[in-house]
């Protein structure tokens, strides 16, 4: 049936075309992406080195102190017990790898995402062009990113970071744009009526007022980044995700539960800390 159909109308070779384009892209940009990959690897390694250099108990107390400063006793206590549990289960090194990966991905997301967010907040044209791209980035199954990313960066931490950035950046961009657009019209008018330059309007009025929304976007991005750690492990990114992957392939329920639990603990701690940054700015 299909053969007869294709006899008359040939198959549209979307997959092959994309593969060809990516291949030729890879061939021409190999040096650049290898360099970029090395840069990312180097940055993550610095973070991981720093995290592992710090004594785990000191680290736990620092996080608990931040949690107390930002969210109060409950979250501080949870962080203390949760992180100690991770240490106790023996997943400390993996957790530090994962933290390094997420932190790098989030820093890149912010550096790229905020300017784009401001742009779609200010320009309707930019919004009309970028929004569908963001939809695409978020709805495309995350596994699919891994393939071109593998082509460009090989295996290891760098492709994991890049795939995580692609998947987790959209909320930062969207919410930054939304935050800029939500600034009340009369405040924009007021800043213009007093003779603000475009940059003064942006930095003195729009960005400060959009800050809580932007923080909400970053918080969402962090959560999405965490949800990517297992997928990132498919391209051999080390960390807790790799442990989960190992547990699945070897049917090791014990490792699965312990590493999964560690991810949940990290997620809750990071969420509560960053969420409350947003709330505090609001009040």
């Amino acid at each position: 049936m299909s053969d007869t159909y294709h006899h008359f109308i040939p198959k549209i070779e979307i997959g092959k075309w994309v593969q060809d384009v990516v291949q030729s892209f890879v061939d021409h940009t190999e040096n650049f992406f290898t360099g970029l990959g090395n840069g990312i690897n180097w940055f993550v390694q610095q973070l991981v080195d720093l995290f592992t250099w710090i004594n785990p108990f000191v680290f736990i107390i620092i996080i608990a102190a931040i949690a107390f400063w930002r969210s109060g006793w409950g979250v501080a206590l949870f962080s203390l017990i949760g992180l100690w549990l991770i240490f106790n289960l023996g997943y400390w090194a993996d957790t530090m790898q994962t933290l390094g990966l997420i932190l790098t991905a989030i820093i890149i997301s912010i550096i790229i995402g905020i300017p784009f967010g401001i742009w779609i907040g200010l320009s309707d044209t930019a919004k009309n062009i970028i929004t569908p791209i963001l939809d695409f980035m978020q709805t495309m199954p995350a596994f699919v990113y891994l393939i071109p990313v593998l082509f460009l960066f090989g295996t290891g931490m760098a492709p994991g970071v890049v795939a995580t950035v692609i998947f987790s950046m959209p909320p930062t961009i969207r919410m930054a744009g939304l935050g800029i657009r939500q600034v009340p019209e009369d405040l924009i008018e007021a800043s213009e009526a007093f003779g603000s330059k475009t940059s003064q309007k942006l930095f003195k009025v729009q960005l400060p007022l959009a800050l809580s929304t932007i923080m909400a976007g970053i918080n969402q991005s962090i959560m999405l980044a965490l949800s990517m750690v297992v997928i990132a492990s498919l391209v051999a990114a080390p960390g807790l995700g790799a442990k989960v992957y190992l547990a699945v392939t070897q049917l090791r329920l014990d490792i699965g539960v312990e590493s999964g639990l560690s991810i949940v603990i990290i997620a809750i701690v990071l969420d509560r800390i960053t969420q409350n940054i947003r709330k505090q700015k609001k009040s």
């Binding site: 009340p184 009369d186 405040l187 008018e189 007021a190 213009e192 009526a193 007093f194 003779g195 003195k204 009025v205 400060p208 007022l209 800050l211």
Partner: peptide
């Protein structure tokens, strides 16, 4: 706008931050 005219708005338009 800076030197000649200042404006007062109906809904005050104060910067809340």
């Amino acid at each position: 706008r800076r030197s000649k005219m200042s404006m007062v708005f109906q809904r005050f338009a104060l910067f809340p931050h």
